[in-house]
């Protein structure tokens, strides 16, 4: 092996170790940080970064263009899906947490008109009103006609 190959493999190795380091940081964050939403900060982002770095290492290690294309596709999908998943989990955690438990000392959403709990309650109240205004028997009758 010549010098260039050694350098190339050293770069791949450093990228792999760096990626694994960020994966480990993500796992440590999930264990050490105080509450579920803060844990998500570590898991979703450090995890995606670590995984992306390992994939870049794979793309650099193998010479073919097909490996490069596949690694880029995997990284792009990771970058697209991570925020969506994080957003959904975050909202679910926030909505299911009881309002009196301290998730953030400073909170501009809790109790405001946009609070998911408040919105769910309002949507439910609206649904109940609709039911009260329109007796279920009427619904069945229209269903028979059509």
């Amino acid at each position: 092996m010549n010098m260039a190959e050694h350098l190339h493999q050293a770069l791949v190795g450093l990228l792999a170790v760096g990626g694994a380091f960020f994966c480990l940081v993500a796992a440590l964050g999930v264990v050490r940080l105080p509450d579920a939403l803060t844990r998500m900060h570590a898991s979703s982002k450090a995890g995606a970064l670590g995984c992306g770095m390992v994939l870049v290492a794979v793309a650099l290690f193998f010479p073919g263009i097909d490996v490069l294309a596949r690694a880029i596709a995997a990284i792009l999908f990771l970058l697209l899906s991570t925020p969506v998943a994080a957003h959904m989990i975050g909202r679910a955690i926030y909505a299911s947490e009881p309002p009196d438990s301290v998730i953030a000392p400073y909170d501009e959403l809790r109790g405001s008109a946009d609070d998911p709990a408040v919105r769910m309650r309002q949507a439910h109240a609206k649904g109940a009103e609709k039911h009260a205004a329109q007796p279920p028997s009427a619904k069945i009758r229209t269903g028979d006609v059509t």
């Binding site: 994966c23 999930v30 579920a36 995984c51 947490e97």
Partner: peptide, 26 residues
């Protein structure tokens, strides 16, 4: 302690598995 913590950890587990397979490829 909560369901949310478990889901966050399971999500991370999936990402870690992808990284592991990529490392195994190398």
């Amino acid at each position: 302690p909560t369901k949310g913590d478990r889901i966050v950890a399971i999500d991370l587990f999936g990402v870690l598995a992808v990284a592991f397979i990529a490392l195994f490829t190398l």
